[in-house]
Nucleic acid binder design. Structure first.
Lengths: 195, 195
DNA sequence: CATTAAAACTAACAAGTGTTAGTTTGGAGT
DNA sequence: ACTCCAAACTAACACTTGTTAGTTTTAATG
């Protein structure tokens, strides 16, 4: 007979969520389809009623979040706010996405190189994001809002911290997104702000 | 006949270096012994004249660097310097190790969970390191050297940046270790310093 | 109750995995 | 020229991998 065509998107979402969680813990390559199946208490072959392939799982996990980052960065950039305000919005964006996607951020940060078809597209998104970030910092230095540091290193430092949030948030259960955002703004942005 | 006992430590070092480079690019699990062999232009079985196992390669790469971090952190901690001076020493330590081990830092950051025998030991080292770091920050806040931020978040932010150095250094060829250290001190430390 | 289709199952595959055993090679020291 | 042995090789192993084909179960709908 023909292959079954999935209808229950809830189940697919559950598989993607479980896969992301496992990928975060050990990385894409170390996790087998049998691992994912076992975590769902089914057999590996059953996964294929819902998803096309292991590679497809990775794509679903990474691309949607990469697009969200790039799109929202675009919005922030095209606003008329000050550079400092833009940076604060970006901190909030990272906190928000990291809170909403506790598992997927692992694959986004560490397994993007295992994308195949979509690797080029992913790199395009990341490049766009980083360029926008860099331009905000450079603009802020030019206008005098931001102290005159090495722009490249400032970008690198802030981005390194924001990209690591996903590792850190689950370890601090009491901390709300609002509180974290406030503290990060203080540590990351006030330090480079001209007063 | 008996198995050959390796003598040429230079060759072993070369294998470890090449393995670390590949691990950095795709992660421990994605790299096969045949990949490593091919990069050295030999057959996979030949690797076993020099190393015990794939797992052994990971151990060699990770543990030596983890010990260096922990040992040197210990030395900095037990000195009589100010908190700010200690932090500057630690920044320099990270820059130095990242420059000297451009490949191994990838495995240290992303593949430590694939350690088996030595996982517990590695976690002990990391814990010791992080505790020392946290104590320096807390001490600095207590003495008034460091502005009164959330200590946990400050630790997390600085450490995230320092841990990402290995990704960033190879992309900025012109940058010397001294220059990078100076700029990082400015961005990471001056921002939290009381004046 | 009968029908239907999603979603599970069993069985199997071809390719790839880390590793071992035993053999050959090539160059340095006598 | 001969010996020696590190370091390469070939061949094979037992096991794991992602994936497909075909079948059965489950549960909602008429």
């Amino acid at each position: 007979m023909k292959k079954a065509i999935p209808k229950n998107e809830k189940r697919k979402d559950e598989i993607v969520r479980v896969a992301a969680k496992l990928f975060k813990e050990k990385g894409y390559s170390a996790i087998t389809m049998r691992d994912i199946a076992k975590a769902l208490d089914i057999k590996a072959a059953s996964l294929y009623n819902h998803i096309k392939s292991k590679q497809d799982l990775l794509k679903i996990i990474i691309i949607s979040i990469a697009e969200e980052f790039t799109d929202k960065m675009q919005i922030v950039c095209s606003s008329k706010e000050t550079s400092i305000e833009k940076l604060q919005k970006i901190v909030a964006l990272h906190v928000d996405i990291a809170y909403k996607n506790p598992y997927s951020m692992g694959a986004l940060n560490n397994d993007w190189m295992h994308l195949e078809e979509e690797l080029e597209y992913y790199l395009k998104l990341r490049n766009s994001y980083e360029n926008n970030f860099r331009n905000i910092i450079k603009e802020g230095i030019k206008t005098g809002e931001i102290i005159n540091t090495n722009a490249e290193i400032t970008v690198f430092s802030i981005l390194s911290t924001l990209r690591s949030l996903y590792l850190w948030i689950p370890k601090k259960e009491g901390l709300t997104a609002e509180e974290l955002t406030k503290n990060l703004n203080q540590v990351l942005i006030s330090g480079i702000q001209n007063h």
